[in-house]
Design a protein around this nucleic acid. Sequence first.
DNA 1: ATCCCGAGGG
DNA 2: CCCTCTGGAT
Length: 228
Amino acid sequence: MSVASKWGSKKQRAEAILAKLKILYPDATCSLDYQTTLQLLVATILSAQCTDERVNKVTPALFKRFPDARSLAGCDLAKPALREREELETLIRSTGFYRNKAKNIQGAARKIVAEYGGEVPQTMAELITLPGVGRKTANVVLAHGFGIVEGVTVDTHVKRLSKRLGLTEYQDPIRVERDLMKLLPQPDWENWSIRLIYHGRAICKARSPNCDDCQLAHLCPSAGSSNI
DNA sequence: ATCCCGAGGG
DNA sequence: CCCTCTGGAT
């Protein structure tokens, strides 16, 4: 029996999954800790290939030492930039990829100071010109920082679960995003990602998905299968 | 396709 | 030991 005949159309199933997610995770929000949009941007860059829990362990000291774009850019310090970057690297070291992340955070901060008056720009086109900022990071900053939903945030969890749920065949995040944008109502794009991430962390884990405890199993073509 | 990178789980 | 964690640049 085909997936379509057993579960209805892809779009119907997507909306049924969305409705169930809203019940399962009614209060789901971005789990990164931050006070300003700049801090949200920095925390999101740090979250690459790293748990949010770990990011939240380093950001209190990080944001105390470097509270805004100007301080991250090194403009208000007499110290040479290299010394400053080493200090930044030390503060974020445990998040992994720390050399690239430090370089990107400082590069992004400098560009924000030089070209945007120290304020995080509010468009996708501008955000993705910042070093270390791709479409995923830009979507997070736009949605949570500015309330602008231009697309669906596709990270490792959203990609994995959307594929397991039979809503896309692709691996490429851009194509996954395009499929999800067609299947889901625009006002739900952002909360879809947040809730799917919660579900991915708690139940539909990358290595060993807990299909026995999954409230979406009746809507999932991969449930109980080893073919995932 | 490959590299960057540490920490935690199994 | 190997895999994964809210990726992005080359």
